[in-house]
Nucleic acid binder design. Sequence first.
DNA 1: ACCATTTGACCGGG
DNA 2: CCCGGTCAAATGGT
Length: 352
Amino acid sequence: MENFGERDQNKLKNELLKGKELAKQLQIHLNMRPSPSSMAASPSSSYSNDNGGELLVQKILCSYEKALSLLNSNGIQISESPSSLNGGSPRSEDSDREFKDLFDQTNANSSRRRNILPIWTQKFQVSPGMALEGSLDDGFCWRKYGQKGILGAKHPRGYYRCTYRNLQGCLATKQVQRSDDNPTVFEITYRGKHSCSQVSNLSTPSTTTPKFQQQNQQTSPDALLNSWACLRVITQNLDTTIHETPTLSFHYDAADRVKTSTVDVNFAEFSPCSSFMSPTTSGSGLSYLSASSSGLSEGFVGNQKLDLQPNKCEIFSSPTSALDSEAPALDFPFGDLQLDPTFTFDDTNFFS
DNA sequence: ACCATTTGACCGGG
DNA sequence: CCCGGTCAAATGGT
């Protein structure tokens, strides 16, 4: 929709450079030797030791490098894309289809829509006895529209779409997949933005993200609290110290090429749930993420340690990256978060 | 009766 | 052709 103008590109570039500098500072801060040579190599081969911090910083730097190089090579095309692949589906006019068409008119084409919508993944661990998908309510109203066994997965994947899809044309969907390894862990893949206006009364930690609250309203606070009550901590793979306090655990599956041009939001805003306090965390405010944004560009480094309480919060690459370089205006749930078509995130331990 | 879920079929991308 | 995602009729719950 909006063109990604030259000015914006410059801004983005500046932000990336800034983030890169901050990452370098962190690297120095961690008493690490900058290893410029490794930056050119592939991430998988660049890291020689087990130092989580170093790994982290190097990957951050690597990501910035990639982003910058892509930016320089004009990799970003957030403007429009050829809008002609319309009308792919033979299925005819049900309400969903109407919305699809509606969407098509404004967002290029439907056949590529899936590739345009932002995707991110969260993993939740719930109490063994309560390991039910239904307990994974994230505050939005979802309607299940399918379930399918996935090759190689022990458990079927559930497909949900926003309840208000028909009423308000909200195209947000999510997939819930129980982990093979740990049945109490659910991997929830969110796709697309909630354009609906679900209303929330939930009180959120005072220090969190007003922007988020404005943009993501919930429906049933009580249900939410109930549902969150079963959340438990995931404590494995903690390289850096994070509190043992039971909180939510987030794994952000920022698709391999998650697009983020100006990530100017609290990281918490990635998730509708992240602004809630887990009932088990009392009022300590530990359950929310406030790793200032820039989770991906600026300030991230400096802020990562701050409020990042969840015992596990990762960004890792998703093989299902649905974000290719042609994303027009991104339909991300969280208004201020725009994603960079060229940003590559492939670090499983990014936030650990 | 209405609404959500289930489930087999269908479709399209790779 | 396989597989993941979606559709829509059937089913169940309220």
